[in-house]
Design a binder for these strands. Structure first.
Length: 866
RNA sequence: GGACGCUUAGCUCAGCGGGAGAGCGCCUCCCUGACACGGAGGAGGUCACAGGUUCAAUCCCUGUAGCGUCCACCA
C-alpha cells in the first residue's frame, strides 16, 4: 500500500470495507513529505506567520517518552495555528554540540581526543571499542562526532515522522552546524564590541574529570558523606589555640585566613591578630566578615583558596592572598604555594604533592594526629556538595582565564531589566514565571561560556604572540564578520601567514570552545536565519512560541532572553509553553538510570501514534503526567471510533455534496447548535494554549454524537421510518458534524483524521480551515436548542436502562414509553418523537406535561422468543 | 533555609462559591444492518486535616501534615 485512497471521479465517498489504523503512520507521513503539507510559506508576512522556537533534542542521548509527550503538545499548537490560516514556521533542531556528544563518541568508538596529535585523513576507528581508548587528533575526533550525530539525527527524524510532528523538514538546524557556529560567533563578537562579553582570570568552578570550567546554571547539589575535622590553630602571640571545623582538611596548605562574624564576641578580641596554620606553619590573619555564621561549627572558619564559593567571596571582599594548591587534574600541585616557607611545612607538603584530594585528606589527617593538632575524632556528616550535572566527582575551584557574558549576576540593574523582560513574556502556565524570577534574583556571577573541550563552537579569535612567544591576551585578533564561522585552530587570522602559528611574533588561536548553552541560547536566531537570510528572519522573528521543559528555565529560557535582550533589546518570543515531566507509576520522574524508560518507537508501533498522542495531549500544560498505557488504549479506541462512525456516515450514500443540503429536523438542528458551542469552546481553549481542554470538548461531543445522535437518526438516515422524508436533513447534519469533528480532532489525531478526510474530501485535513461556529449556527437556525439532544438522549437512556435491567437486547421492542416532564422539555421530546420511536423501537410514545424531573415509564413488548 | 505546585471514586485526573464529575478498572447484561479493537446499564467518594469568611465552601482566607519540584555560600 504505497498510495493513499483518493476520491473517485464521481464524487461519492470511497470508504474501505474494513477500515483499520494499521499502517496509517507510514502511509500518511510519506504523503505529507511528498506533498509538502507542512512546508513553510516564505511569502507570508510576519503577521500571518506563527513561528516556533523548537527545542533541539540532544541527539547523543536517546529520545524517550518525555520527548514524545512534550513535542506532541507543540505539534497540536502548530497544527491548530496552521488550520487557523497561519503560515507555521516549525523547524527542527538537533543539539549535537558539546560534552554529551564527546562522551558518546568516546564510548561508541573507543577513542579519546588528544589535541597534540596530527590529523590522520585515513583514520578508521576500531571495529570494536577496545579496553583502552585510542587517542585521536582533534580534527579526527570532531569528524567522528559529526559522523555519529548524523546517524543519530536520522533515527530521531524517523521517530518524529512516525509520531506525526508537522515539522517542515526543510528547516533543520544543528547546534554544531555552520549556521549555528556563525551565529554563535557573530553574537559573541557583537557582545565583545558592546562590552557584555569579556574575558577574565578568576576562580572558576572546575570539573576535574572533564577538565573544563562549568557554569552556575549547570551545577547541582548532591548529598555526600563527609566529616567535620576540628583543627587547632596556635596563636602567634600565645594563649589558647583557635579551634575551627572543616570538612576539607586537605586544603589546609591553601589556608589564607580565619574568619568570624564581626558581632561574635568570642572572636572579637582576635580580629587583627594572627594564628599559625597547623602542619604548614603559615601565619594567617583572623578577620571579620558578616557572611560568617556564629552558630555553624565553632563559629570561626578557615578560608582557603579555594574550598568553596564562600571562600571566593571572602577572598575577594577581604582582599586576601592566593595560595592555590589544587591542579586542574584534581591533584595537589607539586610546588608549595607562596607563603609556605618553613622547612618542616615544605617537607609535609612534599608528602601531599601529586596526590588526589582523597589521598591528601587521609595523609593530612594522619599528620594532624601525629602533631596533636587534630582535636578529637572526625565527626561524620552528610552534606550537599556541588557537582557538574554531568560529572561524577565534586567540583573544585581553580583560577583560570575564561570568557563571560554579563547576565546580571554581578549587576543589579541588569538583573532588574531581565526580570522585567520575564514579566513581558506570556507564561503558560503563569505560575512558572516564579522560577525565572527566583533564578535571576539569585544569580551570583556572570555567565561563564568557555569550555576546555573539543566538540563545540570555537571562539572566533586569536592572540598575537610576543617576541618571547607569550600570548598577549589583551589584544585579541578578531575574525572578520564575513569569514564566519572560523576555526582558529586551523584558520589563520587576518594579516598573518599559516607558518606564523605558534611562532614568536606570530599568533595562536583561542583553544577553547563555547558552552552548549552559548549556542542554544541563539536558537531563534539560528533557526530564523539571523544575518544569514534577512528576508526569512524578518518574517519569523521574534518568534511566537518557545515550548520547553520547566527544568531548563534557568538555562535555556533565561540564556535565550539574555542574548536577545543584548542584541535586539527585546524578547525573542511572545510566549513560552512549559511542559511537565513524565512520571512512572510510582510518581517518580522516569529516568534512564532507573531502567523504567520505554523507547518511543516501540510505544508508537504498539499503540499507534494517534493513541500515544491522545495520551500526551491529556497532560495539561506544565503538569507532570503519569505514563499511562491505559490512556493510550482509550486514544486508540477513539481513533477506531472515528474510523467506524465515519464509515457509517459516508456509507449512507451521502458525500461532500450533502454538506450543502438544508438541515430541517429538530434533532439535526439541535446537533449543529451544540456543535457550534463546542467549536467555540475548543477554539477558546486553544487560544489560551489549553490543548487538553480543546481535546476534551471535541471528545465529549463526539461520544454523544456517536452514542445518542447517530442512534437517534440512524433509521431516518437509511430513508426509513416515520420521518423518512427528512433523510436529506439527516445526511446534511451527519456530514457537517463529521467534517467539523474531523477538523477538531486533526491537531490531536493527525493520522486517522487524514485517512477519513481522504475518503470524501480533496486535499489534506491539515490544510483545511479550522471550523467556524457561525455557519453552524446559521444552519441550525436561531431557535435551535442544543438541550433538545440532551433531552432525547435522556429518554433514550431510560429506555436502554429498562432493557438492560430486563436483560434483553437493546433491539427489543417497547410497547409503550410514557414521558412526563415540564412543558418546555415535553416540547423537545415531541419534536424528537419520530427519531425516538425509531431508535428505541417504541410502539407508543406518550408525553405528558408535569412539573418536576423528567421521568420515563417503559413497558416492554411481550418477549416473542419464550 | 526560601519559593512554587499538588492532595477529589481502586487508578489517572477534571471541576473551583450554591445539585460531587469523566475515563479507566470493577460488576451485570447485549453478537442490534458503522464499530466485539464493540454496545447498554450499574456499584463506588465525611472532595488531606484544623480553624475562619459567607445565608451557603471541594471551591475563598489562615494554619497543619504529606507528596513533588525549583532555588540556596560545601566551615
Amino acid at each position: 500500500m504505497t498510495s493513499a485512497p483518493t476520491r473517485t471521479a464521481g464524487g461519492s465517498a470511497r470508504v474501505p470495507d474494513k477500515p483499520t489504523l494499521e499502517g496509517l503512520e507510514a502511509r500518511w507521513s510519506a504523503v505529507w513529505a511528498k506533498e509538502g503539507t507542512y512546508a513553510f510559506d516564505r511569502t507570508a508576512e510576519r503577521a500571518a506567520v506563527y513561528s516556533i522556537d523548537t527545542p533541539p533534542p540532544t541527539v547523543s542521548g536517546s529520545l524517550h517518552v518525555g520527548h514524545v509527550f512534550s513535542y506532541t503538545h507543540t505539534d497540536c499548537i502548530a497544527r491548530y495555528q496552521r488550520m487557523r490560516g497561519k503560515a507555521v514556521f516549525y523547524p527542527m533542531g538537533w543539539d549535537d554540540n558539546g560534552l554529551p556528544t564527546e562522551r558518546r563518541v568516546q564510548n561508541y568508538f573507543g577513542v579519546r581526543c588528544d589535541p597534540s596529535l596530527p590529523y590522520d585523513p585515513g583514520y578508521q576507528p576500531p571495529a570494536e571499542p577496545g579496553k583502552q581508548q585510542q587517542p585521536v587528533s582533534r580534527r579526527n575526533f570532531v569528524e567522528l562526532c559529526e559522523q555519529l550525530t548524523a546517524t543519530d539525527e536520522q533515527a530521531f527524524e524517523q521517530v518524529w515522522r512516525q509520531l506525526g510532528l508537522s515539522v517542515d523538514w526543510s528547516q533543520v538546524y544543528t547546534t554544531i552546524g555552520s549556521a549555528a557556529q556563525a551565529a554563535s560567533q557573530r553574537a559573541f563578537l557583537h557582545g565583545l564590541a558592546r562590552g557584555e562579553v569579556y574575558a577574565a582570570a578568576a576562580p572558576t568552578l572546575w570539573d576535574v574529570t572533564f577538565r573544563t570550567a562549568v557554569a552556575q546554571a549547570e551545577l547541582e547539589d548532591r548529598e555526600r558523606p563527609g566529616a567535620y575535622h576540628t583543627l587547632a590553630f596556635p596563636r602567634t602571640v600565645g594563649g589558647d589555640p583557635v579551634l575551627i571545623e572543616t570538612t576539607r582538611p586537605e586544603l589546609l596548605a591553601a589556608c589564607v585566613a580565619l574568619v568570624a562574624h564581626p558581632d561574635d564576641e568570642r572572636y572579637q578580641p582576635l580580629f587583627g591578630s594572627t594564628v599559625r596554620s597547623p602542619l604548614f606553619e603559615v601565619e594567617v590573619p583572623v578577620v571579620a566578615h558578616p557572611l560568617a555564621e556564629p552558630d555553624k561549627g565553632s563559629g570561626i572558619a578557615m578560608i582557603c583558596t579555594f574550598g568553596d564559593l564562600t571562600d571566593v567571596t571572602w577572598w575577594r571582599e577581604l582582599d586576601l592572598p592566593t595560595r592555590p594548591i589544587l591542579g586542574r587534574d584534581g591533584r595537589i600541585v607539586t610546588d608549595p604555594p607562596p607563603g609556605l616557607d618553613s622547612a618542616q611545612g615544605r617537607a609535609r607538603f612534599e608528602t601531599l604533592a601529586g596526590t588526589t584530594v582523597f589521598t591528601a585528606r587521609e595523609r593530612t589527617v594522619e599528620m594532624l594526629r601525629e602533631t596533636g593538632e587534630l582535636v578529637g575524632e572526625p565527626k561524620p556528616i552528610t552534606h550537599p556538595v556541588k557537582f557538574y550535572e554531568k560529572g561524577d566527582k565534586p567540583l573544585e575551584i581553580v583560577t583560570s582565564r575564561q570568557w563571560y557574558i554579563r547576565n546580571g549576576g554581578r549587576d543589579e540593574q541588569v538583573r532588574d531589566r531581565l526580570i522585567a523582560r520575564g514579566a513581558e513574556l506570556a507564561w503558560y502556565p503563569p505560575y512558572m514565571k516564579g522560577r525565572y524570577d527566583n533564578w535571576v534574583g539569585g544569580l551570583n556571577g556572570d555567565w561563564l561560556i568557555s569550555r576546555q573541550r573539543f566538540f563545540g563552537v570555537p571562539f572566533p579569535l586569536w592572540y598575537p604572540l610576543g617576541g618571547d612567544g607569550e600570548p598577549d591576551f589583551t589584544r585579541p585578533i578578531l575574525a572578520d564578520d564575513a569569514a564566519l564561522p572560523v576555526d582558529p585552530s586551523s584558520d589563520v587570522p587576518p594579516g598573518y601567514a599559516p607558518e606564523q602559528r605558534g611562532r614568536p611574533g606570530g599568533f595562536i588561536g583561542d583553544p577553547d570552545v563555547m558552552d552548549t548553552w552559548a549556542t542554544s541560547s541563539l536558537t531563534p536566531q539560528i533557526a530564523g536565519g539571523w544575518e544569514r537570510d534577512p528576508d526569512l528572519f524578518s518574517r519569523v522573528y521574534p518568534m511566537d512560541l518557545r515550548p520547553q521543559g520547566h527544568d531548563i528555565i534557568r538555562t535555556w529560557l533565561f540564556s535565550t532572553v539574555v542574548r536577545a535582550d543584548a542584541e535586539f533589546d527585546a524578547l525573542p518570543w511572545a510566549r513560552v509553553m512549559l511542559s511537565g515531566w513524565i512520571l512512572d507509576p510510582d510518581r517518580k520522574k522516569m529516568s534512564k538510570s532507573k531502567g523504567n524508560v520505554v523507547t518511543p518507537l516501540s510505544l508508537l508501533v504498539e499503540h499507534g501514534s494517534d493513541a500515544v498522542r491522545y495520551w500526551a495531549a491529556s497532560g495539561r500544560v506544565g503538569t507532570d503526567t503519569a505514563f499511562d498505557t491505559g490512556q493510550m488504549k482509550v486514544g486508540r479506541r477513539l481513533a477506531m471510533k472515528v474510523l467506524n462512525v465515519s464509515r457509517f456516515v459516508l456509507g449512507l450514500g451521502a458525500d461532500a455534496s450533502a454538506l450543502q443540503a438544508p438541515v430541517t429536523a429538530a434533532v439535526d438542528r439541535a446537533l449543529l447548535a451544540g456543535l457550534a458551542d463546542v467549536v467555540d469552546r475548543a477554539t477558546a481553549a486553544f487560544e489560551s494554549y489549553d490543548y487538553t481542554r480543546a481535546l476534551e470538548a471535541a471528545e465529549d461531543f463526539f461520544w454523544a454524537f456517536c452514542d445518542d445522535y447517530v442512534e437517534l437518526v440512524k433509521v431516518r438516515a437509511y430513508g426509513e421510518g416515520p420521518a423518512a422524508d427528512a433523510v436529506g436533513s439527516a445526511h446534511a447534519a451527519l456530514t457537517t458534524a463529521l467534517s467539523v469533528l474531523l477538523r477538531l480532532f486533526a491537531p490531536f489525531l493527525p493520522f486517522v483524521t487524514e485517512e477519513v478526510w481522504s475518503w470524501w474530501q480533496d486535499g489534506s485535513v491539515h490544510a483545511a480551515h479550522w471550523p467556524d461556529s457561525a455557519p453552524l449556527r446559521d444552519a441550525a437556525g436561531v431557535d435551535a436548542a442544543p438541550a433538545l439532544l440532551a433531552t432525547a438522549g435522556a429518554v433514550l437512556s431510560a429506555v436502554r436502562k429498562a432493557k438492560s435491567e430486563a436483560k434483553v437486547s437493546q433491539r427489543a421492542a417497547v410497547a409503550r414509553a410514557s414521558v412526563s416532564a415540564p412543558a418546555d422539555v415535553v416540547t423537545q421530546v415531541t419534536a424528537a418523537a419520530d427519531d425516538l420511536r425509531s431508535a428505541g423501537s417504541i410502539a407508543d410514545l406518550a408525553v405528558q406535561a408535569r412539573d418536576g424531573e423528567l421521568t420515563v415509564d417503559v413497558v416492554l413488548a411481550q418477549a416473542s422468543d419464550g
